[in-house]
Nucleic acid binder design. Structure first.
Lengths: 110, 110
DNA sequence: CGATATAGTCTTCGTTGTAGACTATATAAA
DNA sequence: TTTATATAGTCTACAACGAAGACTATATCG
C-alpha cells in the first residue's frame, strides 16, 4: 500500500477535481471539472485509470453507491482524497511556488 | 519536430530551473536548483535524460561550450527555454491556478 | 423490448520518470 | 609523469504515468 511516489501531472488534476467536487466526486463530473477548468480534453478511460492507480497508491478512497433512479442511473463510484494525497498536493504546490517565484517576467503575453 | 504534448511534472521543474538560472543553465546547476527549491532528490541521469527529450521536442535549445580552465573543467552544455515551452508553462500555470482556486481550506497545516 | 443515456471496466501502448554504471576531460597531488 | 580526484555528461534499461478505443452494465423512455 501507498508506495509514496511523486504525483504525476494528471494525477494532480484529478485529485484537485475531487477536492473541488466534494461529496459529488465521481468519474464523469471529475472529467468535466478538469475539462472546464483547464480547457484540456481527457478521455473517460484516462480518468478511471488514474483514479484506480491513485486508489492503489492509497491516495484516494472510493465507495460504490447504489444506483439512482434516473435515466442511465448506473451505480456511481464516489471518491475522496486521503490525507497522504493532501500532503503531497500541498508539498508540490509549495515547490511550484518556489520554482515560479521571481519569474514574473516570463509570464507576460507575447 | 515539436510534437506538442503536455509537459510532464518533472519536465516543468527542469524548464523552470533553466529560466531561473538564465545564462548559467547547464546540467549540474539545474539539478542543484531543483533540489534546493523543491527539497527533492534527482539523479544526474534524470536531469540529462529529461533535457535531451525536451530538446528533441523543441522545448529547449542547447549549445556545447568550450571547456573551462578549472578543475574538472569538462565542456558544459548550456540550455535555454524556447517560446513553445514558455507558452506551455504559462498555460499549465493558469490551469493549476484555476484548479487550486477556492481550495485554500485544504492548504492549512494539519 | 429495442433505443438511448449514464457510468464504469479492460486492454493496450506510447511517453515520462528515474537511476546505476560508465565515459570524458580537466587540475591537483604523489 | 602517473595516479587521484573533481566536474560534466552519456548509455541503457525499466518502472510509472498518460491516454484512448472498444466494450460492459444498468437504468429510463418510447
Amino acid at each position: 500500500m501507498a508506495t509514496q511516489k511523486n504525483l504525476g501531472e494528471f494525477e494532480q488534476l484529478v485529485l484537485l477535481a475531487i477536492l473541488r467536487l466534494g461529496p459529488a466526486s465521481y468519474g464523469i463530473p471529475i472529467r468535466e471539472e478538469i475539462e472546464l477548468r483547464t480547457g484540456r480534453r481527457a478521455s473517460r478511460a484516462a480518468i478511471y485509470t488514474t483514479l484506480r492507480r491513485l486508489e492503489e497508491a492509497g491516495m484516494v478512497t472510493s465507495r460504490l453507491a447504489d444506483p439512482t433512479p434516473e435515466r442511465g442511473g448506473r451505480a456511481k463510484r464516489y471518491f475522496r482524497v486521503n490525507d497522504v494525497a493532501l500532503e503531497e498536493l500541498r508539498s508540490y504546490r509549495g515547490a511550484m511556488f518556489s520554482m515560479w517565484d521571481g519569474l514574473e517576467q516570463f509570464l507576460d503575453r507575447s
